[in-house]
Design a protein around this nucleic acid. Structure first.
Length: 399
RNA sequence: GGGUAGGUUGAGCAGGUGGUGAGCUCCGCUGACUGUAGAUCAGCCGUCUUUCGACUGUGGGGGUUCGAUUCCCUCCCUGCCCA
């Protein structure tokens, strides 16, 4: 198998990129923020950035159907290579017309590569230069995943954007040597992904690693930026790092990409303050399971913070979760009703709760975009910082 | 009326045939969750105490005994069977 970026770039036909990205409102020259407004053009329509992509691991954003997804304002979603490969199988999805058709979602999709499962599956995998050996979480069977394999699966799924198979470094157990090795391997794997990726209607993003080591982050950024990817991911920051550590890592990456025309995608982060901070740092794309997962577990975001609908105090509360919220939960139902549903283990709870949190977050993102457009974004960041400092409830930004 | 099986901390149970019953599952309360092994997980869940710990508690009453949830008597309540 041939490797190397040069081989790969010759495969990628110049001129007709599978996606295009244009920055419509660049960061202000005064350096007050790196926030920028952009538009990603794909075969399945445009995506305004900064964008948050809800996560639909098993070809579904849990509890929602495509109508719900459009209603909450999702313009692009993420799905997962590893899970769909195991079940129902990427070949089956391909036979059935590809992922978009399979899940009846006609807007853009990005597939994660399965690299993150190196972290999430913990002991159930082993890694070497060839790739990763996973133990299936479904039946314990063994599966080898290589960069080439990941790309093949992603091409079969047919998402608009595929992502390189990388090796994130598990958060705490990260000696500098371990970070350096995983990062270097991620670079070699990136080249292998490029070498085999040929689907012309699918973009491919590379993943920057480097942990929290500034020089390794910088080196990783330079190497990845030197390869003909359609976009660049910032990986390995959705673990137990502090907000300050994340910001520091992003602030190493983005300045090195200042004149790079490609979108920047921070993988795995999705709380409102995380988004605000990362947009300020110059990030264009996000994904996270957080809003949907905490919703299913009873926690809903409101401007004042979080509500845990399991709490007894909501059983008699006739107010909507959030006054004035446009989501289907708030339009029709009381906190008392939702508190009842969750106690009764009623399935409707998951749908309503997920609709609310995604609406909250996507509306927050829309507000960020309009603030960038009208120049008020730095003020938004400042207000948020003030609120945190004074420990008053954050405006649009619960933890 | 006769027989029989029972009555344990909100519910359902376990255990205990004379040597200190606070154990489980629900329910309930609180918290966590960030490229989804997650509609999951963790802590608490008799009273007092931050903790250590102390106290109370095996349907009611009585008896035997150094000591009773256990043995005896009696009453109450519940299920089932027979009349």
């Amino acid at each position: 198998m041939t490797t190397g970026a040069s081989t790969a770039s010759s495969v990628r036909v110049q001129g007709s990129r599978p996606i295009s990205f244009q920055v419509r409102v660049p960061p202000p020259a005064d350096g007050s923020t790196r926030a920028r407004l952009g538009r990603l053009l794909t075969h399945h329509g445009p995506v305004d950035t900064p964008v948050f992509m809800p996560v639909g691991t098993n070809a579904t954003v849990k509890a929602l159907d495509p109508d719900d997804l459009r209603e909450v304002g999702a313009s692009m979603i993420l799905s997962n290579t590893y899970h769909l490969y195991l079940r129902p199988g990427h070949e089956r999805i391909e036979r059935l017309g590809g992922l978009h058709r399979f899940m009846a979602w006609d807007r853009p999709i990005l597939t994660d590569s399965g690299g993150y499962q190196v972290v999430s599956l913990g002991e159930m995998r082993s890694v070497d230069e060839t790739g990763v050996t996973f133990r299936s979480h479904l039946d314990g069977s063994l599966h080898g995943f290589t960069p080439e394999h990941s790309i093949a699966v992603q091409e079969a799924l047919g998402a608009d954007v595929a992502v390189c198979f990388d090796q994130p470094v598990p958060p705490h157990a990260s000696s500098r040597v371990a970070v350096a090795e995983a990062t270097a391997r991620t670079h070699r794997w990136a080249a292998r992904c490029l070498a085999v990726h040929r689907r012309p209607d699918q973009a491919l993003f590379g993943i920057i690693q480097g942990g929290l080591e500034p020089d390794l982050r910088a080196e990783s950024t330079r190497i990845l930026a030197g390869m003909p990817f359609d976009g660049l991911c910032i990986g390995g920051l959705a673990g137990d790092e502090t907000a300050a550590q994340r910001r520091a890592a992003i602030d190493v990456v983005v300045p090195l990409l200042e004149r790079d025309p490609r979108p920047r995608y921070l993988m795995g982060l999705g709380s409102p303050p995380d988004l605000l901070d990362a947009v300020d740092a110059g990030v264009d794309m996000f994904d996270s399971v957080l809003p949907a997962r905490i919703a299913r577990n009873g926690t809903l975001w409101v401007p004042e913070g979080r509500l845990n609908l399991r709490n007894a105090r909501f059983l008699d509360d006739p107010a909507p979760v959030q006054e004035g919220c446009r989501c289907r939960a708030c339009r029709s139902f009381s906190r008392a009703y939702l508190a009842h549903l969750i106690r009764a283990d009623e399935l409707l709870f998951y749908r309503l709760a997920t609709c609310h949190n995604l609406t909250f977050l996507l509306d927050f993102m829309a507000r960020i975009r309009s603030a960038i457009a009208d120049g008020s974004f730095p003020e938004l960041v400042r207000r948020q910082a003030d609120r945190r400092a004074s420990k008053i409830a954050p405006e649009g930004a619960p933890e």
